[in-house]
Design a protein around this nucleic acid. Structure first.
Lengths: 343, 343
DNA sequence: CAAAATTCTTTACGCGCGTAAAAAATAATT
DNA sequence: AATTATTTTTTACGCGCGTAAAGAATTTTG
């Protein structure tokens, strides 16, 4: 690598001794040219370090090799992990993932979709904000761009949804908690932004009814994505008022639970399943930090690998099918219980 | 918005009643055309929803309006927050930020730089992996693309570095801890990936010497970016061996501290500054979760706003200066102590 | 109101690459 | 070796836009 600088494909073709259309074909799909030709091209790439101009490449192509990945909140390590897997798979499959975070704002989400449209991506993996999302913006986007929703479902939008089965989360935690101690009260935000939260509440109520137990839902105030702080404030309020209905709390999600556990620690409530403990706490998501709470958090874990893996596979199938499925697919993966020390 | 679909700038120019070169000029800089012309173009944009093809736009332009943002580890909420601020500022200034995460891998970092090169960005904000980074890859990249390093410095690379003053972190925590109780031992990884870690150790040793106190450094095993787990394992080892040299521990960073606190909780060590406590723990970074550890973590906080803000401003200045500064700038922001319950 | 300054239109070319079609070269098959 | 199948070369055009130059239109200035 070094020599003189190659300016364009024409020049590269001439120094590699292959015609430009063949070189172009190679960059579109290396296996589409004869092995000996491929070797010569690759030797020249090695030597001159040439890469085609991606802007010129994409300007005519109706479908680029770009894949858009949109998450609601990047500072949440949960999405950080999901993104890592998705990115890797996209690159392995020869796509260029572009990553976007709505940062909890519907305006940003809309802007991102606008930007994505002009990137002409082959497909998009979209984890929408949820309740706050601009439905019509997403709807119109999904009409134009092959889109797979993940994490948060919005009925009818996108060609497919891949996520976790909220019922399986809650049924496992409720079953476990009520089998091993007092039945749980449910701890959640009054106005959750994420549709999964509503599914979880309904699953809780359903499970409690099925088990013949009295349900109890604590709904705390707060808006936005600072779930830990919301959970902490809400929990402090309840604990200080000594308004705990049971000695077992099931949180809608781990980030609320992290806040709640910090409130318990501050107010001296001992959390765990030992005899000396005041309170059991369990939750859902298996947030990367839930291992490090005090005590470590018993929770129902997403099938991370399958959710991210299947999202990507579905999008690849969608792209190969020309951007449309016959009917909208919904795939839900079951959770599995992670027994730790908090319950 | 609606009408018929506009295919290109030619068509858009004709429906808006303005010539194409003028329209092109407008999209390059709206203030460069007369107000009345601007109004007519903007009315047409509103009506037809046209956006120029970004690939065609960028194909000739030597400098695009793209800005690359590279962080070492996106699942770390610290970087999630930084990225949020940076993105917003870039967009406000009319740039299109593209976000990349090395996910802790030097190979990925190199690939990202390769990709970025072909994106022809106006500039790049790079938070390198540190010790693991492929120095020569970064060096050659910085020669070709105007780059501002942030968070982790690599001597001599990029036109500028913006980060936090590690000495100010450590001097504040050491001073505070040794003033209010036993002087601290230092808790860190034996082979830290991040250059800040080495600066912090040296600052610790320096401070202790200055205060005339005996230093004590505990170096734990472990590689990679799973700092919490590394911290937990290392702490468990020390606690179980009852090998704590002092009752005060200063962690190199919050993620290690989070693991250490979880180990303390597991093994029954009470952390805090009360008389009933066994141990004080403090740390550095003010990680978004350090507020929610048990007990909440006393730590030295990055000047988040200034680090991210000044990084962006510096890059803008660099771009305006044609991509080169006369001499390499280094800007360090001081930390401030956040007193919480752990020490 | 005329002259000067600014802005816009017309015309034209080029960027780097995709891609189609026909001819030529190479490889596989009999 | 001759035929056939596959791959490559040659030639040529177009994509959507940037941009330069010269002239026309508009606005500002004196």
């Amino acid at each position: 690598m070094g020599e003189r600088k190659i300016r364009n494909m024409e020049e590269f073709a001439s120094v590699s001794g292959i015609s430009r259309p063949t070189v172009s074909k190679y960059f579109h799909d290396p296996t589409s040219v004869r092995a000996t030709t491929r070797a010569r091209i690759e030797a020249a790439i090695e030597q001159y370090g040439y890469r085609p101009n991606i802007y010129a490449m994409n300007q005519n192509r109706e479908l680029t090799k770009n894949i858009g990945v949109v998450v609601p909140y990047l500072a949440d390590p949960f999405f950080g992990e999901i993104v890592r897997v998705i990115e890797r798979r996209c690159i392995e499959a020869g796509f260029s993932p572009s990553l976007f975070s709505s940062h909890g704002s519907a305006d940003q989400e809309r802007d991102i979709l606008d930007t994505l449209r002009s990137l002409k991506p082959a497909g998009v993996l979209l984890a929408p904000l949820g309740r706050l999302s601009d439905r019509s913006a997403i709807e119109s986007f999904c009409r134009d761009v092959p889109t797979v929703l993940f994490d948060s479902n919005i009925e009818g939008m996108g060609e497919s949804f891949v996520g976790s089965d909220n019922y399986s989360f809650v049924s496992q935690t409720v079953e476990y908690l009520s089998r091993t101690g007092e039945p749980p009260s449910f701890f959640e935000m009054k106005h959750p932004a994420n549709p999964n939260a509503n599914k979880r509440r309904r699953a809780y109520l359903d499970m409690m009814e099925r088990l013949g137990l009295p349900p109890n839902v604590m709904q705390i105030d707060g808006t936005g994505w600072a779930f830990e702080e919301i959970g902490r404030k809400g929990a402090l309020d309840i604990l200080n008022r000594k308004a705990l209905p049971t000695d077992t709390i099931l949180c809608s999600n781990d980030r609320l639970a992290i806040g709640l556990l910090s409130a318990c620690y501050e107010t001296g409530y001992r959390v765990g399943r030992g005899a000396e403990c005041d309170l059991r706490v369990a939750s859902h998501d298996d947030h990367p930090f839930s291992r490090y709470t005090c005590p470590s958090l018993t929770t129902a874990a997403h099938d991370y690998a399958n959710v991210s893996g299947h999202s990507v596979e579905t999008l690849f199938r969608l792209i190969e099918s020309g951007g449309r499925f016959k009917s909208r697919e919904e795939t839900l993966f079951s959770a599995h219980l992670i027994m730790r020390d908090s319950a």
